[in-house]
Amino acid sequence: MNIFRFLGDLSHLASIFILLHKIQTTRSCRGISFRTQALYVVVFIARYLDLFFRYVSLYNSAMKLFFIASSCYILYLMKIRYRPTHDPSIDTFRVEYLLAPCLILALIFNYKFNFAEVLWSFSIWLEAVAILPQLFMLQRTGEAENITTHYLAALGAYRALYIPNWIYRYFTEGLVDPIAVTAGIVQTGLYLDFFYVYFTKVLQGQKFELPA
């Protein structure tokens, strides 16, 4: 565990608490893509199935359980509790266009051709693109509540912070994980436009608005 990795995990945790806070205080899931949240459930379940056969640390297991539980809880809030506040007509990104290529990538790029490793690779690729329905929705509405942009910033920062972690681990442990690194760079890249507007507008006290 190094500082980049730890800050990345904290950022990921923070993003979920920000999202829960947004939904609970506004009593609404307006502006949040259900499709993206559903993809995260798939990502976490696919990757963290190893809870059943691999023990790393208490930290690791607790985080995995938290990410599975919180992502399922968010789906419950969106689909049942605050269902009327969710507008499916603007959340239209076709997720099969993400799922199928990720499955193919996982079948080609994996460290061992067995069920658990292919599933792990699938979850890494899927996580990289799972934000697309959300970004697509943002693009369509052209604006977002401040709290939603803080959620996205924390979520984007998480994988961005893993990049210096991988560099650090390469030099200290000689560890290289080309699949995670490639997918992580793609994932961070998808946030660049968002980060630009976030830093130049939201953090300067303005509203998040995309140019028409």
Binding site: H12, V56, N60, Y111, W120, Y170, G174, L175, V176
Partner: peptide, 10 residues
């Protein structure tokens, strides 16, 4: 260098 997933990452 060893190549592969660390599996200790989240």
């Amino acid at each position: 260098a060893s190549e592969g997933p660390s599996h200790d990452e989240l």
